Amino acid sequence: MNHPNPMTTDLLALAEMEAIFLPPISDSELEELAKTNPPLAHKCSGCAYRMGTDAANNPTTAANRDDCDRAGHPFWCHMVRNDLGMPVHLCAGWVDARASLHPSEKGEG
């Protein structure tokens, strides 16, 4: 059985908790962040923004997702991680959701 690394889990939880206290990310900051941490081309099969997935139904993940939406903070894809177990891509579902709230980011404004 594969158990998560408690240190990695703690670091990720701390990073997500600290994000709640940061100011919202601006469009220009998002653009810079996306250059180094691009979202995947499409929502992954387990995306927290895809109805019915384990992530979407997990109260902790759903709360983190909703907190990021409300606060304007990036939400990270949980599918691909670096050697430290930290996410390396912006969540494609979060990028889509943000674009629907900010049409100018899709080039419509």
Score class of each variant (00 low, 15 high):
E18G: 05
A15E: 14
Y49S: 07
C68Y: 05
L22Q: 13
L12K: 04
M51C: 05
M1A: 15
C47V: 03
I20D: 04
P4Y: 09
G72V: 04
I20Y: 14
E31V: 02
L14E: 11
N57I: 12
V95M: 08
G107P: 13
D10C: 13
P74D: 02
L12A: 13
A48Y: 07
S45I: 13
F75H: 05
A63V: 02
H78W: 05
N82I: 07
K43A: 09
R81Y: 04
P38F: 14
L11I: 09
S100T: 15
A71Q: 03
L12R: 09
P39M: 02
T61I: 15
H3P: 09
V88D: 02
A48C: 13
W94F: 05
H73A: 05
N58E: 13
M86L: 13
R70P: 06
F75T: 08
M7S: 09
G72C: 06
W94A: 00
R81E: 03
V88N: 03
I20T: 12
E105V: 01
P103V: 15
H102E: 00
D83V: 09
W94V: 00
H3I: 07
R65T: 07
A62M: 13
C91R: 00
L22C: 11
V88F: 06
P74Y: 00
G93F: 00
A63F: 06
A41P: 15
L22W: 12
P23H: 08
S104Y: 11
T61R: 02
C44N: 03
A19F: 07
D54M: 06
R98W: 10
H3T: 10
H89N: 14
D66I: 12
L12Y: 10
T8A: 11
D10T: 05
W76H: 02
D67C: 08
A97H: 01
L40R: 01
R50P: 09
C91W: 01
A34V: 04
P59D: 07
A34R: 00
L30S: 01
P74C: 02
C47A: 07
T9D: 13
G52M: 06
L90E: 00
D69W: 00
L33W: 01
V80W: 14
L33Q: 02
A97N: 03
L12I: 12
K35Q: 14
S28V: 14
P74S: 04
C68T: 12
K43L: 08
N57E: 11
S28L: 07
S45M: 12
H73R: 06
E31Q: 06
S26R: 04
I20P: 01
R70L: 09
P59N: 09
D27I: 02
V80I: 15
R70F: 10
A92Y: 01
G107I: 10
P6E: 09
L30K: 01
G52A: 04
D83M: 08
E31R: 01
T61H: 05
A19L: 10
E16A: 05
K106P: 12
D10Y: 14
A56H: 05
L101M: 14
I25N: 00
D69H: 01
A99C: 12
H42I: 12
P24Y: 04
C44M: 06
A34Q: 03
N82F: 08
L33K: 00
V80D: 13
E32W: 07
W94Q: 00
V95E: 00
D66L: 11
D54C: 07
